[in-house]
Structure formats: structure tokens, C-alpha cells
Design a protein around this nucleic acid. Structure first.
Length: 263
DNA sequence: ATGGCCGCCCTAGGCGGA
């Protein structure tokens, strides 16, 4: 199964790029984050015409929003309200016996301090909830589970362009890294990108729009992740961060990540 | 060293992103 995760930053604005991605890589399943559109406005017809006839979405006006687009039928679909909010940050499908979760973890605002920044508290609570939810819901040793999406946390030193300069910047603070690692350990998740790219090599999936030349300055962060349960580790075949998509006209600030997994 | 952009929305400046 070829699987893509991509924070598309508006599915309507980026539809031509999405169709290009489908045409070039022919993934079986595509998980999108930040679709930024209500379900009634989702561009179903064009996506179905490209062969992705199985669509599971949960969107809202202006912010957040998720989609799973597939050539393969779903056996189940679900929508979750994390930390009690109906804000379109977690959906899932069951496909070929695999539970596939599409996540958009809150960005967390500017100040990494829960006492003055409610958004940062929301982010940490969101991760905490998932830390117990996955092991309570599945058996990592038996169930085939995949979690992908924009986690908005770059956990490793070489997941950011400057570890030292980003220690106090939301996305790379010690408390966020600790929380994300706790979530990973609680289900023995496998961090797929780091199975293919050694931890001592720089690896990014996001580059700010603010850099005049994102490629030249290369001040990126690895915010997008693909995690698989232990069951699937031996099936990992291929992996690529499609940074070429960051180089197109009107790009998303995130690059898609593609993996191939033998099920 | 710093500031630098983008997309959305009851079309225009504010919010959110990270």
C-alpha cells in the first residue's frame, strides 16, 4: 500500500497540486490536514474523477479539517472529538484490515507556557489524551495501526534547522518533545521517517512561507509524521519526503510524505 | 541579527498558523 500524508493548507486552493500528486505518484491512500473547508464545499467530483472514489472527510469553515482519499474501499470510518472539542483534528478509516488514523495536533500558539497560553495547554492535553487512547483502543502487538499527520512537534535535534535556537520555540520545546515521546513509547510506535533517514541527518517536512528562498535558507522543521505499530515495521518498503511539491507555484508550506508498506 | 508570508473570512483587517 502506498500512503501519503500532507498538510495541504486549503484543499480548494491546492486542488491542482493534489491532482498532480495523484497523477505522479498514484498513492492508494492520501491523508490530508488543514483542508479548511466545510464538507459541503469539499471538491469531491474532481477527486473522484482522479480515481479516489472512497472519501472520508470532516471539515469546518476556515480552520483545521481532515480528509482521507482512497482508491481502496473503507471497512470502517470514524470521527473523534479530542479533548471534548468538535474541531476536526482526528478521523480514521479501516482499510485492508489496517486502522489508519489521520491527525492534526494543535499548533499551540506562540508562548510555550500553559499558564498564559490556552492554545499551548490544548496542544499538550491533546497529546496526553492520545497517549492513553491508542493503547486503550488497540493491541500494538496484534493490531495493524498507522497514525499519520501534522503533529506540530519536531522531536529530535536534527528535526529542526537549529536545535539551540528553537528550544524555546513552540514545536521543539522540551515539554512538547517529552509529551510526544511519551505518546510514542506508550504504544511502541515506529517513527517511519527515521527508519529511513538516520537520526544524525537533518530531515524536514515544513518550511516557513516567511523565508524569501526556502530552499536556500533551508530553515525547516519535521512536523509531519508517519507512525506504524510494531506489526507493520517489517513491511516498510520505501519512504520519501516530496519536497519538490514545496517548490511548485502556490505551494503548501508542508511537503507531502509518501511511504510504501507491505501489508 | 532580524524580519521576513500565507489563507481564510459576511472584502478587509484580524486571526491562526508554527
Amino acid at each position: 500500500m502506498k500512503l501519503v500524508t500532507w498538510n495541504i493548507n486549503s484543499v480548494r486552493l491546492r486542488l491542482p497540486l493534489l491532482l498532480q500528486l495523484m497523477d505522479e505518484y498514484s498513492p492508494d491512500v492520501i491523508c490530508l490536514q488543514e483542508t479548511k473547508c466545510q464538507d459541503i464545499h469539499f471538491p469531491r467530483e474532481e477527486i473522484e474523477a482522479a480515481g479516489y472514489t472512497h472519501i472520508h472527510i470532516k471539515g469546518m469553515k476556515s480552520y483545521n479539517g481532515l480528509a482521507v482519499l482512497s482508491k481502496i474501499p473503507f471497512e470502517e470510518t470514524d470521527i473523534y472529538e479530542r479533548v471534548g472539542r468538535d474541531d476536526c483534528r482526528h478521523i480514521s478509516v479501516k482499510i485492508k484490515g489496517v486502522y489508519l488514523h489521520n491527525l492534526y495536533i494543535p499548533a499551540g500558539g506562540d508562548e510555550p507556557d500553559v499558564t498564559i497560553n490556552e492554545k499551548f495547554a490544548h496542544k499538550l492535553d491533546f497529546v496526553d489524551e492520545l497517549t492513553s487512547w491508542f493503547p486503550n483502543t488497540y493491541k500494538g502487538s496484534e493490531d495493524k495501526v498507522i497514525a499519520v499527520g501534522d503533529f506540530n512537534i519536531a522531536p529530535l535535534e536534527h528535526d529542526v534547522w537549529s536545535h539551540k535556537q528553537l528550544l524555546k520555540v513552540v514545536s521543539h520545546t522540551p515539554i512538547e518533545v517529552e509529551k510526544l515521546n511519551a505518546m510514542k513509547d506508550a504504544f511502541s510506535w515506529v517513527d517511519v521517517s527515521r527508519e529511513f533517514i538516520p537520526e544524525n541527518e537533518k530531515c524536514y517536512s515544513w518550511w516557513s512561507y516567511r523565508n524569501r528562498d526556502w530552499k536556500k535558507s533551508n530553515r525547516g522543521r519535521r512536523l509531519d509524521h508517519i507512525w506504524v505499530s510494531e506489526q507493520l515495521k517489517n513491511g516498510l518498503k520505501d519512504h520519501e519526503i516530496l519536497s519538490g511539491m514545496r517548490d511548485q507555484e502556490k505551494p503548501s508550506d508542508h511537503a507531502p510524505i509518501i511511504v510504501e508498506i507491505a501489508l
